[in-house]
């Protein structure tokens, strides 16, 4: 090997490291927990769910157009849902925000007790007992929240419990945007 080439060879580790650092620096400003959905900007898949409470109104994909809507996927057995719940109650208090719930793989009786204890923020709740609709929606785990526009298309998905910050920085501005 020629000596000139050798010098370059010795520089190689440092060069690789510089590139690596570039990526690491970029990585610091990215959020790895942000999971995209293949359904963004697509119409909500067709579904028709029975209500959680037999006296209440059911939830179907047809109900999700006409108004900007939030759909929260929750379960009584899910710890983070309990954390998220007070914020959902606050959101429900705000005027003209449509908040629907999908009760995921849950015992309806236990889910009803859970909502009686913590309060029920949802105008409609569909019971997705076998989780089939959640699969259609590409749900990874509970809680997840979908933002749906007037045309019934999914515009945003939030994975995990919504924090105050997520609400004021991400979701609320998006909702205002969609309303215009």
């Amino acid at each position: 090997m020629f000596s000139g080439n050798r010098r370059i060879l010795y520089l190689l580790p440092a060069a690789v490291f510089i590139v690596l650092c570039g990526f690491l620096l970029r990585g610091l400003s990215l959020d790895p927990a942000l999971v995209p959905t293949a359904l963004i900007d697509k119409a909500v898949p067709h579904f028709d769910l029975a209500p959680l409470d037999s006296q209440a109104s059911p939830l179907a994909s047809a109900d999700l157009s006409g108004e900007v809507t939030l759909v929260n996927v929750f379960a009584s057995w899910c710890g983070p849902c309990r954390i998220e719940h007070p914020l959902l109650m606050e959101i429900a208090e705000m005027d003209n925000i449509n908040l629907y719930g999908i009760n995921y793989k849950d015992d309806p009786a236990i889910a009803r007790d859970w909502l009686t204890e913590l309060g029920d923020p949802f105008t409609r709740i569909g019971a997705d007992r076998d989780g089939r609709v959640a699969i259609e929606l590409g749900v990874y785990g509970v809680p997840e929240t979908f933002l749906i526009d007037r045309e019934g298309r999914i515009r945003y998905k939030h994975v995990g419990p919504i924090s105050e910050e997520d609400w004021s920085r991400e979701l609320l501005p998006l909702i205002r945007n969609l309303r215009q």
């Binding site: 010098r7 580790p13 690491l24």
Partner: peptide, 17 residues
């Protein structure tokens, strides 16, 4: 990391040949 690893790899590039 940049100081320690970058510095030592630079030193390596200069001295190791």
């Amino acid at each position: 990391l940049v100081v320690v690893v970058g510095g030592s790899l630079a030193l390596f590039a200069i001295r190791a040949p």
